[in-house]
Amino acid sequence: MKTETNKETLISPQLYVPVLFFVLLFLIPLVIKNPFYIHNMILIFFYAALSSAWNIIGGFAGQISLGHAAFFGIGAYTSAILYVDFGISPWIGMLAGGVLAMLVAAGISYPCFKLRGPFFTLSTIAFGEVVRLLVSYFRDITRGAVGLLVPFKPGIGNLMFRGKIPYYYFALILMILVVVVSKKISVSRMGFYLTSLREDEEGAQAIGINTSLYKLWAVMISAFFAGIAGVFYAQYILFIEPESVFSSAMSTQFALMSIIGGMGTVAGPVVGSFILTPLSEFLRSTLGGSFQGLHFAIYGVLLIIVVILMPQGIVVWFKDKYEALLERLPNEKRREVKS
């Protein structure tokens, strides 16, 4: 999104259109009550949040991680273990999970930052696998591949609810939070540094940007939110196992939504999730039984087409229309400028 000025007033369409959109999302449960649709919406927000979090390091900084499920899984496992074994509320677990994911991310990413492009990606895959294998191995703590069951005791303190509406709002708020943070980063100095190091790392270093430091910040923020999303997953599904939360398919999923939606933009991952999540749920429920695998093949074809024809993602296609729409909407500032 283009912003002519840094400060946006509430009446500028750049701000009120997204706000209206989010407000609309807040109102949906008043109309749609069926838990099945609500569940799909929850998944959309959930993946949008994760993909946006991935986008901070993968999109803004251009450091493609295909091991992000590690941070997601660490969040999920931390809070679940704290809750199941020590009775600590998942709210605290959420913070612990997010912070631990952040620390692990910092610890493993920092040395890897000297690797460029595909080599960084390879190292993230390897780290993702190591984390998964270790979690499976240390059975005494994690229960290993058996998986961890979170006993259902509804209550706000336990972050567990009988209905889906509270989960809906939790996921929605999480998504908005990540989007807002992404937006803040993208218009901040840090965002500028990240973009410049993505385009030309040597160049960025030459003009005095501490590229490692900013990459580190980016990966930490990214991992923190991935960890929190992991906690949400554990409390929502109530059963986690290494094969599902640490799977490389999960890692690919985060990146995929971002890249199809539009990598390196704030809206891209959200658009990606709003399109791909219902698409995959729909394809699975219609094709699943009779044509197994076909929906993922369609996914793959889409990915290739997007990469070849629209390397900036679907969001580019919406961008002009969106900006044209913004132009037509009442805008306080433009009037000022004109007068």
């Binding site: 295909l66 929906h295 993922f296 290739i304």
Partner: peptide
């Protein structure tokens, strides 16, 4: 994609692997 940035190359081949894998499953 031969001259595209490495990220795009990674995703194109990831896409290819998704297609092959799931066509085989299908």
């Amino acid at each position: 994609i031969i001259n595209a940035p490495p990220t795009m190359q990674i995703f194109a081949t990831v896409g290819l692997s998704l297609v092959f894998q799931n066509l085989a499953l299908f």
